[in-house]
């Protein structure tokens, strides 16, 4: 352990300045950024929704397009936050020395890593909101309960951002991120109930999916978007929160070990 610095991070409100810095840069690149946030998930929604929709018919008592809309919202938030926590954060850490510049000010590493996770969460939320708007326009959202999904998605995106920052702390180059995408993000995308109900899978695969956070996000978000109340939302929320807290502590510790040695 480096020095005698406490293991638990103690970010201060100064983290807002770091978050704002990322927001200002994002605003400069808003067109390509929004296109990525927005274009790809909408394509998935339309292609799978219309393409499969007519073949599949109803699923869990809802049109396939309705079923998949809530899945795409969650997976898109996961992808957006993960990308931000890996490629973009790595660029700021290792290529542009942005974090080193910040460390010459009253900001601490705890502030910076926390801000990056909150920023990744923000981008995940932005992508979820854009898809939610399109989904409502297409009549795929049942009622105003869908708005309650947004804070859950924000928390989930924080968790995915923090997990990505753990990978960033260990990365020696951009190529390293492929491991995480192949071994964690893609399995979560395919096995967590985004495209079809979790219950279609063999028991042990379901168990595996429930050991990872995305399935729990869907267990809360899908009912909220389709006009129902999620049952047993608390344990699901607890899993997402536990992953998030564990990841932010680990990411801060690893990045401190990497940069402040």
């Amino acid at each position: 352990m480096p020095g005698d610095h406490p293991v638990l991070p103690r970010p201060s409100l100064r983290f807002v300045a770091v978050w704002r810095r990322n927001l200002l840069v994002w605003r400069k690149l808003i067109v390509p950024s929004m296109l990525g946030n927005f274009g790809e998930p909408i394509l998935y929604l339309l292609a799978f929704g219309y393409g499969f929709g007519s073949l599949v018919g109803d699923l869990d008592g809802m049109r396939y397009m309705v079923f998949i809309a809530s899945g795409i919202i969650c997976s898109s938030a996961m992808f957006t936050a993960s990308f931000e926590g890996m490629y973009s954060a790595y660029t700021r850490m290792a290529e542009q020395n942005t974090w080193l510049g910040m460390l010459a000010t009253p900001l601490t590493l705890d502030d910076i890593v926390f801000a990056e996770a909150v920023w990744a969460a923000t981008k995940g939320l932005i992508s979820a909101i854009t898809i939610l708007v399109v989904a409502s326009l297409l009549g795929l959202v049942s009622d105003a309960r869908a708005l309650l999904a947004l804070p859950v998605i924000f928390l989930a995106a924080f968790t995915f951002g923090a997990l990505a920052l753990v990978i960033t702390a260990l990365a020696r180059s951009y190529d390293f991120f492929l491991y995480y995408f192949t071994l964690a993000v893609t399995p979560m995308l395919l096995l967590s109930g985004v495209f079809f109900p979790l219950t279609e899978l063999p028991g042990w695969v379901q168990g595996l999916a429930l050991a990872l956070p995305l399935a729990h996000v869907l267990e809360i978000v899908r009912p909220l978007m389709t006009g129902a109340w999620p049952d047993a939302w608390l344990p699901h929320l607890a899993v997402i929160t536990a992953y998030g807290l564990g990841a932010i502590v680990l990411a801060t510790w690893l990045i401190r070990r990497r940069l402040l040695r």
Binding site: K28, Q96, N97, T98, L100, G101, A104
Partner: peptide, 9 residues
């Protein structure tokens, strides 16, 4: 600092 940390963005 010894190395440039200006924000290129």
């Amino acid at each position: 600092p010894q190395f440039d940390t200006l924000d290129p963005d």
